[in-house]
């Protein structure tokens, strides 16, 4: 069971859970949640250095990028050009080519798929390995795969909403439509929803708000760790076919 690794763009990950680094009380809590989650990859944002206070706490002082893969995102970018510019800076800052592309719209932060596809092509041409945040439209997900994405990351529900796995049918159709790893990103609210997504055959989960916003983020990180493992194992084990009526579990013969 230990050889069931998540492989993205040739890189091997032992955990199928990726956690965010936003919205925690502080970086120390974030680091503790990371340990509890067992994740070996975290999403990070790219922002201006505070020139007036260069000594403020830094993420890299709490989560070591040599031990945990940093996945720079393009959150806050509303055009393809901004996303490409941001990731070029991220690559220089960290030296990594694996990135998370998200080009959002002003409509409830839904992904702008036209801009997303356009910037994916620019990034692929520039040598990036791009994990793409996207809608759960299987047709568009195929277009992302054809354009050279490294992973397809459909939303479960609007970002930060905690509404859970709203359209499991589409997530399953996305998984069936592409060969790339499918990672459900955004909108989950609690651990059982992560397990449900994994049971559909998804390859991984990204969770930020569901963990960071919980009353006890460290315990919730622990819960997500086990949910993702449970969901994956259940998927690999193969569930029984649902039956309409009762079927006894104990033999009906040999009764006293």
């Amino acid at each position: 069971m230990d050889d069931d690794k998540l492989i993205i763009a040739g890189r091997e990950f032992s955990s199928r859970l990726i956690i965010g680094t936003g919205k925690y009380k502080d970086y120390a809590e974030n680091a503790a949640a990371l340990t509890a989650s067992g994740a070996d990859m975290v999403t990070v944002a790219v922002r201006r250095v505070n020139i007036n206070n260069p000594n403020e706490p830094m993420l890299v002082d709490f989560i070591n990028p040599n031990e945990t893969m940093f996945l720079p995102n393009t959150a806050g970018c509303f055009t393809g050009d901004d996303a490409v510019r941001t990731l070029r800076l991220a690559r220089e800052a960290g030296g990594w080519s694996l990135v998370k592309l998200e080009v959002l719209s002003n409509v409830h932060l839904y992904p702008d798929m036209e801009e997303t596809l356009k910037s994916l092509k620019l990034l692929v041409a520039d040598g990036f390995d791009v994990m793409v945040y996207c809608t759960d439209d299987p047709v568009y997900c195929q277009k992302l795969e054809e354009a050279g994405a490294a992973a397809i990351m459909p939303l479960a529900a609007p970002i930060g909403s905690g509404l859970g796995l709203l359209n499991p049918t589409n997530i399953r159709l996305v998984k069936e439509a592409v060969k790339l790893p499918v990672i459900v990103d955004a909108g989950l609210g609690t651990a059982s929803e992560a397990a449900a997504a994994m049971e559909l055959g998804c390859d991984g989960i990204i969770a930020n708000t569901a963990i960071a916003g919980a009353d006890d983020p460290i315990r919730m990180a622990h819960a997500f760790k086990h949910a993702v493992i449970a969901g994956r194992q259940a998927y690999l084990a193969g569930r029984i076919k649902p039956k309409t009526y009762a079927v006894p579990s104990s033999p009906l013969t040999g009764l006293i």
Binding site: G22, A45, R47, R48, A75, T86, L89, E92, G94
Partner: peptide
Amino acid sequence: AVISKSAYDNVMLRDNDKLEIIHFIGGG
């Protein structure tokens, strides 16, 4: 244009240059 770290010593700044200096912070 992104300046590689190896070029920091050699790239001279001029009046009216515009710089962006970024790092990684928490994000989803």
